[in-house]
Simulated scan of single mutants.
Amino acid sequence: MRYASTLVLGAILTAGIAFARPQPADEQPDVSAEVKASRDAARQFGGALKEALQQAIKTGGPTNGIAVCHDQAGQIAADLGSKLDMIIGRTSLKTRNPGNAPDNWELAVLKQFEARKAQGEPADKLEFFAVIEDDQGQKTFRYMKAIPTGALCLACHGDKLDPEVDAKLKALYPNDTARGFKEGDLRGAFTIAKPLP
């Protein structure tokens, strides 16, 4: 599981995906605090990743930046998730790390994001949240925020990669599909989950 949290919460989310039931509007909990906290968590996670990438690229070029995503991104997510009592991760329709593959709920949201972007919504404004209830009655708040492809991303995710970058990516990620992006494309999304009382 790509999320950095307990196996119990992982089981809750898995059950929630399999047995999620829509709730009538009058039974839905007020999740405004969770939305605000999730937006802030996505901003913090994205900021920490970008800062680490920029520093790595500055000191060792794009191949050095690959190490940030490969070796540090999961720990950054785990540390922030532990601090905020959330499960924090990244996912995409075109993954590089198979551990970041979307679950069924995330897959549906990512497809919705692509459709909304195709209708003219800016990628940096796309977000979605819902409360999922599993078959045990446990409610989990889930949130996703789109990640647009920035100029910084293109050195490793664009359609023309430096041969050294290409070789390192092939060595680390033999089943990589996270290529061919252009600036402004939907690169993926931050994904956050938090059990509700």
Rank of each mutant, 00 (worst) to 15 (best):
Q72P: 11
P98A: 03
Q75L: 05
P197M: 07
C69Y: 05
L172A: 04
K117F: 10
L49F: 03
D71S: 02
D26H: 14
T191C: 13
P197E: 06
I192H: 04
Q72K: 15
G137V: 10
S92K: 05
L7N: 13
K125T: 15
G47V: 10
D40N: 08
A118P: 12
T91Y: 11
I76M: 01
P197H: 08
P98M: 05
T191Y: 13
G65T: 07
P22F: 15
Q136D: 04
T95E: 04
G47R: 14
V8C: 09
G150V: 11
S38E: 02
G74R: 01
D166N: 11
R90V: 02
P22G: 14
G99Y: 08
R142T: 11
Y3A: 09
V131S: 01
N97K: 12
A15M: 13
A118R: 14
A101H: 08
A146L: 11
Y3I: 14
A25G: 12
N100R: 09
Q28C: 12
F190W: 03
A48K: 07
A155S: 03
M1P: 08
Q23I: 08
K36Q: 04
L13G: 10
A130W: 14
E164N: 02
G65W: 08
A52M: 13
K111H: 06
K50S: 06
F141E: 00
C156P: 11
D124T: 12
G81D: 14
K117S: 09
G150A: 11
T95V: 11
Q136P: 06
H157F: 12
S82W: 08
A189V: 01
L169W: 05
D135I: 15
A78N: 00
F19A: 10
D162A: 12
P102E: 09
A130L: 14
K170T: 05
I87H: 09
K194Y: 02
D30T: 09
C153S: 01
K168T: 04
F45E: 01
D71E: 01
I87A: 11
T140Y: 05
G180S: 04
K194P: 00
T177R: 14
Q28H: 12
K94A: 00
P197G: 07
Y3V: 13
